[in-house]
Design a protein around this nucleic acid. Structure first.
Lengths: 136, 136
DNA sequence: TACATCGGTCTCAAAATGAGACCAGCACTA
DNA sequence: TAGTGCTGGTCTCATTTTGAGACCGATGTA
């Protein structure tokens, strides 16, 4: 396999995760990205990248998440192997969530996007304002 | 006092986009990330990073997107300043979508995440299979 | 007794999304 | 001239996802 050909794979093909002829609907890269597309996934990843947190701590840290979505998002992140869930046999039992190695690796990539947002949110906000002005 | 206060800004604070005392709910970084959390945003960004496409071309390129969501996602990406919409006065009029400079800049960061997914989707798939096995 | 804490689950309403019909205007064909 | 197709959408309705909040059982605490 010529490595030059790999480099010539288009960005879209990389996203599709196919070297040719595959079905765009069943795409491993899309599946992974979809798992991070949830409204709360990246925020919780950022929190847990800082340090491990317990369920109630996360709830207080992110006041506008419902308990239902916190449970569900943590469950999904655990399922995808990003988050480890550890139950302590206290009374009542407490649960600590932390990033796995895979989670830390993934957050390394996600962090680029967060940093970009930090640097450029003014430009985005300005673009929105300008666009909304023309649509009024 | 906690020693991590000495840290300049935690990852979570960066995500919050606040240097202190702000409200987590109104956060510029969160707003930007939310705009990319849509189910189709990153896929369309990857397509347009490859080359400009027309509406119908994108529709054929991504067979499982509904016309409704294609219109809406492109509209949102245009509103945030990532995508430029150009109408050609042909009959019937055709519309070309392309990335702006801001869009290309943002995709540079997003690309890290896509590349990570390309390299690690096997690990994620395996984590899912293992997790589902224990839950069965 | 009364009340709070732990980490959830359950129900119901609201919002986002999917599926598909429909539209106007023009070109081409029969 | 009537029919058909292409363009990029919008509109309606059903399904899915999310939000808001009540409820839970076992324990500690006032």
């Amino acid at each position: 396999m010529d490595s030059r050909i790999v480099n010539l794979r288009s960005k879209l093909d990389v996203y599709k995760g196919m070297t040719g002829g595959g079905n765009l609907a069943d795409c491993p890269v899309r599946e992974v990205i979809q798992g991070l597309n949830g409204k709360w996934s990246s925020l919780l990843m950022a929190a847990l990248a800082e340090q491990p947190y317990r369920f109630g701590e996360l709830r207080r840290l992110v006041p506008d998440i419902s308990q239902r979505m916190l449970t569900q998002t943590l469950h999904d992140l655990q399922r995808d192997g990003y988050v480890h869930r550890k139950v302590f046999p206290t009374k009542p039992p407490s649960v600590e969530y932390s990033l796995t190695d895979l989670g830390r690796s993934m957050f390394g990539a996600l962090h680029h996007l967060i940093q970009w947002a930090e640097l450029n949110h003014d430009a985005v906000r300005q673009a929105r304002a300008g666009f909304d002005a023309t649509q009024a």
